[in-house]
């Protein structure tokens, strides 16, 4: 299980400079209060993993970091810039360094796989078509997608779409990557492959990463920090080891539920286990 080394060792470029800072971010959609004062700091070159139950607002946090959603209150800073104040051009300057995988992959559905991955290169760099081709092929090979270049997103499986999204996110050598559920819908060996790849590219490029995942506990191996979002606030943000041992009741409940350590004995106690 541990083909990829634990990254809490400082083999990733360390930095104590915050790359992303959320201060007291509140957001409501209509009557629903989704975020009620989120505080989070992601340090440069480090990996933050956000966990939490479905529908708690993890994707909404990522959209705040991307500048796609404005907070009702509070500030979002990326590289020290307040996303609410930088204006369109400033926002673009910050976003130049982003690599984003959306939860639904958000591929351009009237372009084939090759063009999807090539788009950032074509629109943002002056690479020649030959350079683009070799670069894209390399990324597609990493994602085990060679042979599917001519397919359209609608002709791909869910997991393949994810991998095309990952290839597209990494093609421009980003400084910060945002992966919203990178391995959901992938089989175990594929997701291990993605984790290994993630680890390798992060060592090469030294990017900061924000990952939303339900793949607990495996995702902890990649994390420098784990943050649990529940009830609209970050309940804890700790190293993976400390997170698993936290005494905070909500965190404990989450850990027990997802890692199944005590769940089984609880269930036995209540006599549920026999019935199943």
């Amino acid at each position: 299980m541990s083909d990829f080394a634990a990254t809490s060792e400082p083999n990733v470029p360390t930095g104590q400079e915050p790359a992303i800072e959320l201060r007291d971010v509140c957001k409501r959609f209509g009557r629903q209060e989704v975020l009620r004062g989120v505080n989070l700091t992601v340090f440069e070159g480090r990996t933050l993993v956000i966990v939490g139950a479905s529908g708690q607002g993890k994707s909404v946090i990522i959209k705040h970091m991307l500048g796609l959603v404005r907070p009702d209150r509070g500030t979002v800073r990326v590289f020290g810039q307040d996303l609410n104040r930088v204006g369109r051009r400033g926002l673009d300057d910050v976003r130049r360094h982003f690599g984003v995988l959306f939860q639904n992959a958000a591929l351009f559905d009237s372009m084939n796989v090759f063009d999807n991955v090539a788009l950032p290169l074509r629109e943002r760099t002056r690479c020649s078509e030959a350079e683009i081709r070799s670069n894209v092929e390399e990324k597609l090979a990493l994602m085990d997608l060679l042979g599917s270049e001519e397919k359209f997103p609608a002709q791909l499986s869910g997991g393949m779409r994810k991998r095309v999204g990952l290839a597209r996110a990494l093609v421009l050598k980003p400084k910060i990557v945002f992966f919203d559920e990178p391995t959901t819908g992938l089989d175990v060996s594929k997701s291990n492959e993605i984790y290994r790849l993630f680890h390798r590219t992060q060592q090469q490029l030294g990017y900061t990463a924000v990952i939303v995942s339900h793949d607990v506990p495996k995702i902890f191996k990649l994390a420098d920090q784990v943050a649990l979002l529940a009830d609209g606030v970050i309940q804890e943000c700790l190293t993976p080891e400390a997170f698993q041992l936290s005494d905070q009741p909500v965190v404990r409940a989450f850990v027990e539920e997802t890692m199944g350590r005590l769940y089984r004995s609880d269930a036995e106690e209540e006599g549920l286990y026999e019935k199943v």
Binding site: K63, L68, D93, R95, F98, F102, A106
Partner: peptide, 10 residues
Amino acid sequence: QIDALECMAI
């Protein structure tokens, strides 16, 4: 897809 474009600074 439009959000994706914006996030790529396109």
